[in-house]
Design a protein around this nucleic acid. Sequence first.
DNA 1: ATAAACCTTGGAGTAAACACAAAGGTCAAG
DNA 2: CTTGACCTTTGTGTTTACTCCAAGGTTTAT
Lengths: 144, 144
Amino acid sequence: MFRIGELAKKFSINADTLRFYEKQGLLCPSSVAANGYRLYSEQEVKTLGFILRAKEVGFSLTEIKSLLSIEVDKANSECSDVKALVDDKLDQVTAKIQELQRFQRSLKRLSNACCGGHESAEDCTILQALESETLDIVPEHHHE
Amino acid sequence: MFRIGELAKKFSINADTLRFYEKQGLLCPSSVAANGYRLYSEQEVKTLGFILRAKEVGFSLTEIKSLLSIEVDKANSECSDVKALVDDKLDQVTAKIQELQRFQRSLKRLSNACCGGHESAEDCTILQALESETLDIVPEHHHE
DNA sequence: ATAAACCTTGGAGTAAACACAAAGGTCAAG
DNA sequence: CTTGACCTTTGTGTTTACTCCAAGGTTTAT
């Protein structure tokens, strides 16, 4: 059995995080000692590993709670339940990537259009684009 | 001159958002009427457009504040200042995309390994992978 | 005169995932 | 017997970008 600090150290996380997960209903100690200390068994070690791996692939704590509720009651759950959670997450992640890629394209376009030198920002193409209603790059204009 | 509700409507945003931007130091009304109503001029219309376009390319309000402080003092700023903000943002966005793509790859791997059918979750490859210390897909095991 | 549709300020609430601080109990070592 | 390293609970703070609410003043239309 592990005390909270031991379990935390084992996974390089904060003991507060374990208390937080407990409050969120993700990971409860298997027992509590007479002195009030939380005690965790090998089962909780496994579950915590599960939680942290689920985090590694992008699941939120709420989603992990859903995964865990299936995990503890596998017999009454179906593959499709699990896969649905993964596929929902996949859709979310894909949508977010697409949004960020739009940002990335726009930012690259702005960056490439700008000389980035010590010239005055008065003629900066980036600022001009942000001023333009269409976010367009204004063609270079040479002063005579 | 526009009252707050008029300006909000013009840009399809909430009047509360304009008050919020004001509190954040992004957009102040050009004057206040005798009755206390905020009044916005064409200049603020332009600035609000600038703010919203900067948001469209992914800038946070804090970053937009930096952009605006350059925008209002172009003469004493350089292209390099503006480009640095864009390039910093580009790096952030790129890093975030990479993180999400790692999630995406893992999630796809999990999804593809799972039958997603009405089989019991007891043999679900997704759960097995999350249980495995290495997040590996466990090869299919047929019961005899 | 009154109702609707504005406007004001101030402050609270939301999500996410913790980190941290305060005040105090517990335990092993020296 | 005291020190230090644990542990407990409770509650607050962080970040971002709003959104909403309450209580009240103003304006416009009928």
